[in-house]
Design a protein around this nucleic acid. Structure first.
Lengths: 230, 230
DNA sequence: TAGATTGTTAATCGATTAACAATC
DNA sequence: TAGATTGTTAATCGATTAACAATC
């Protein structure tokens, strides 16, 4: 099987999830005028081990030169291609509360392969207001966005209690990729892909480790007690 | 080894990462007045398989009743305890741009075990302004926040180019858990835990799958060609 | 050629899953 | 007791890692 076909067949999920990080590191290197990089250097810049990096890249094909390293521009191009970022994906953000407006103003989407083409809100009283250059549109516009503007990705930035309803709207309109910022599980058909970002969840994971850290002295003490009991 | 000790020793990372989701589902069940739940029902609510749920919970201890299920309040309490959420963790948010202000106004932190005690910004010209109830403070206040208010968790909501500098400030002040929203890798000492949330990365992962989906027809065609070539 | 670094192999590790004995 | 559901076991699967042959 050619590397090309291998790339399209099955890149492991864990590898796919790291490709954006490599791309980011490569972009940063390119901006600093660096044109060639070893797996060791790139891995350090991306915060992974070099073995993991080389294994991940091997799923894409063979774009390095033994004894030399990788050409920064070439590798960035190959990763972009693998991720499907040669086109700019149209994105709509639903829910124009604090978070939705912050996302609408975020420049990082535009520079990394996405084009925020529409902002929407269920609340008719905010429809018509503008956030930056874009007007807030009603949910009823979703169908036209999918048909006419090839909208493929929807971002849900509503409170949890309206997220499922918004997801239903998106799915009915034909959107099959959803990024969900609401702290809830969405029920969608099997062919719709949902990824979730939950800031409180991330903090809770940090809290678990922080607690464990500060609990170490207590733990040592209670282990002693147990030692006696046994 | 008692379940209690097992819980403190090693809960697998993958399990820890799912506990907040279970807690959320339990909270939602409790709000709807449901007091008892089976692993099958809770797993469905949290979007995982029941086998995975039971395995995860088994690392915490044995809090279910065979033939009956789990008491919602009890299990929520046990998960909260395991995650270290019996206390409210003081959090500071650094970077008062669009995202930082959105996070500062987000009520989800307060309800899920955290207390945003301070907002900071490197830019002296915005220091003194208020976001909601809290004033924006200078970076120099970090030391006092750690010492006097037991600040343990810092959230970085700055652009990528100032994130490392902010991380250095946090680490110097004694913060050892960081949630990073800036699209860059932070270089911190080994005992500092960093979790990263990158919205563009999430979209890129969605794009990969979306691209694969729309590319399926092409792929089938090229496979035919290859069949001939072989 | 000698030195360097990739791409791959094989071993290890951790996570998931299905099945079921334990037991309410 | 009979029915239901947990907690655990063992098998499987996927991801990580270290080492090194291939090769520039």
């Amino acid at each position: 099987m050619s590397a090309d076909v291998a790339a399209r067949r099955g890149i492991p999920d864990a590898s796919v999830a790291r490709l954006p990080g490599y791309l980011q590191a490569l972009t940063s290197l390119a901006e600093r005028g660096i044109s060639s990089v070893s797996s060791e250097e790139l891995a350090a810049a991306a915060g992974v081990s070099s073995a993991k990096l080389r294994k991940d890249l091997s799923h894409l094909g063979s774009y390095g030169v033994r004894g030399v390293g990788y050409e920064v521009d070439r590798l960035a191009y190959e990763i972009s291609t693998a991720l499907g970022l040669t086109q700019n994906w149209p994105v709509a953000i639903v829910g124009m509360g604090n978070l939705g407006r912050a996302l609408a103003s975020y420049s990082g989407f535009e520079t990394r392969g996405f084009n925020v083409i529409a902002l929407l809100d269920r609340d008719e009283s905010v429809v018509g207001n503008a956030v930056g250059d874009l007007p807030i549109r009603p949910m009823a516009d979703l169908g036209a966005l999918v048909r006419e503007d090839h909208l493929a990705i929807g971002v849900i930035a509503t409170p949890a209690d309206s997220a499922q309803d918004v997801a239903d709207h998106l799915v009915r309109a034909g959107v099959r990729s959803i990024l969900n910022f609401a702290p809830c599980v969405l029920d969608v058909p099997a062919d719709v892909m949902v990824r979730k970002v939950d800031m409180a969840t991330e903090l809770q994971i940090l809290a678990f480790h922080e607690q464990r850290r500060t609990g170490e002295l207590d733990l040592a003490a209670s282990d002693d007690v147990e030692g006696v009991a046994l």
